[in-house]
Amino acid sequence: MEVEHGDVWEALRPLCARVMSVPPEAVLPHARLVADLGADSLDITELEVASEEMFGVSLKGTDKAGVSTVGDVADLIVRLRTTHAAHSPLAR
């Protein structure tokens, strides 16, 4: 099962806009969650929970140290979904 980065981006963009109360056009791959979009710790937590529900992945226990932009979030979700698909019993 191949995970399309574009599909993740198309779903993540409006989600970020809603959670951070910014216009969708402000949500760009290089936009920094805190510095550019004004996210606080509650916004980050809400984004994590909403992303887990929307994309069917668990962000718990993942290394989020290098995640600072919207593009980084999309990349992390794609990696997690790809890893999950590879370990799925149906993938064998």
Score class of each variant (00 low, 15 high):
66 G>Y: 00
86 A>F: 13
26 A>W: 12
54 M>L: 15
64 K>W: 13
92 R>G: 15
42 L>M: 14
53 E>F: 06
76 L>C: 02
3 V>M: 11
34 V>N: 03
92 R>E: 14
51 S>P: 10
15 L>H: 08
57 V>D: 00
9 W>D: 08
32 R>M: 06
14 P>Y: 09
27 V>M: 08
2 E>W: 07
26 A>K: 15
73 V>S: 05
8 V>H: 09
81 R>N: 01
81 R>F: 03
12 L>Y: 09
61 G>F: 04
92 R>F: 14
77 I>W: 00
18 R>M: 01
17 A>R: 04
29 P>R: 02
17 A>Q: 05
20 M>D: 01
39 A>F: 03
45 T>M: 15
92 R>K: 14
74 A>T: 09
41 S>Y: 10
38 G>V: 06
90 L>Q: 15
61 G>H: 07
27 V>H: 10
26 A>L: 09
9 W>L: 09
31 A>G: 08
27 V>R: 08
6 G>L: 03
53 E>Q: 12
65 A>H: 03
59 L>C: 11
1 M>Q: 12
72 D>S: 03
75 D>K: 07
87 H>M: 11
19 V>Y: 01
89 P>M: 12
49 V>H: 08
74 A>V: 14
89 P>N: 13
28 L>S: 13
22 V>F: 04
46 E>H: 06
92 R>V: 14
31 A>S: 15
83 T>S: 13
50 A>I: 03
49 V>I: 15
42 L>A: 07
54 M>V: 06
77 I>H: 00
16 C>A: 14
8 V>Q: 11
77 I>E: 01
48 E>H: 10
38 G>S: 05
1 M>K: 09
36 D>R: 13
44 I>K: 01
